[in-house]
């Protein structure tokens, strides 16, 4: 926020406040983001709009600047923590709302042998922001974990993350097993992680490759909308 002591978020009009929340999110200022979200809710804003306009909107800018090498991993983590705080306020309201806005369930996990989870967590958060119910399997998931989650949750999309060149191929193992069990038409399979590219995703038979969190959540939403159309 500003270094001016008198600066008060309450003094801003709605448009300015949304922009300020986005700025504060960018700067990783969790308390300010939390306060901004509270104020918008106090002004009778719909929780969905707060989420979409202020938080997801802000996080998209963060994602773009990370991709362009302007922001680095620590800053992105600070932004993510700020967004998480704001989402904590919105989640109970969204869960209570009578209209079901859920795009469906999205199972996501880092594959076996891999302990990197920053990117996966970010994608999970953006998916939640877009309206998915995210089931996070955490790290180090053998194929059995994905199968068990599919059985239990009947997701619309299953996502896998890998950051090591040694663990990337395991995504292919999971997809092969899903194909062998004749389940590949039951849900969409998305993959992601820094060392991956479209070519690799195609080679292992994934349905989609997500380059970053914003793009991935957009692709996932578009896929569901196309399914429902």
């Amino acid at each position: 926020m500003s270094d001016n002591e008198d600066f008060n978020l309450n003094d801003l009009d709605d448009k300015e406040l949304v922009e300020q929340i986005q700025d504060d999110l960018y700067d990783g200022l969790d308390e300010e983001v939390f306060e901004g979200v509270q104020i918008l809710l106090g002004r009778e804003w719909d929780a969905n709009d707060v989420l979409g306009d202020a938080l997801v909107g802000g996080m998209k800018i963060v994602g773009e600047d990370f991709r362009d090498g302007i922001l680095f991993v620590p800053e992105v983590l600070k932004c993510a923590a700020a967004m998480k705080g704001g989402m904590g306020l919105l989640r109970p309201i969204l869960a209570d709302s009578s209209i079901d806005i859920s795009l469906g369930k999205f199972v996501i996990g880092t594959v076996k042998g891999d302990i990197h989870d920053i990117g996966k967590n970010l994608v999970g958060m953006m998916l939640e922001g877009a309206g998915f119910e995210v089931i996070d399997l955490g790290i180090n998931n053998p194929v059995e974990n994905y199968l068990a989650a599919i059985e239990e949750h009947s997701p619309v999309i299953v996502g896998m993350s890998a950051l090591l060149t040694t663990t990337m191929p395991y995504m292919g193992v999971v997809i092969e097993e899903i194909e062998r069990l004749g389940m590949s038409n039951d849900f969409h399979m998305m993959v992601g992680g820094a060392p991956l590219n479209q070519e690799f995703a195609d080679a292992i038979g994934a349905d989609a490759y997500g380059r970053d969190a914003a793009r991935s959540s957009e692709m996932a939403s578009n896929y569901i909308e196309a399914q429902r159309a």
Binding site: G28, F72, V73, P74, E75, L77, K78, A81
Partner: peptide, 8 residues
């Protein structure tokens, strides 16, 4: 960034 943000 753990020097600047130990909370991470």
């Amino acid at each position: 960034g753990l020097d600047r943000f130990p909370e991470l």
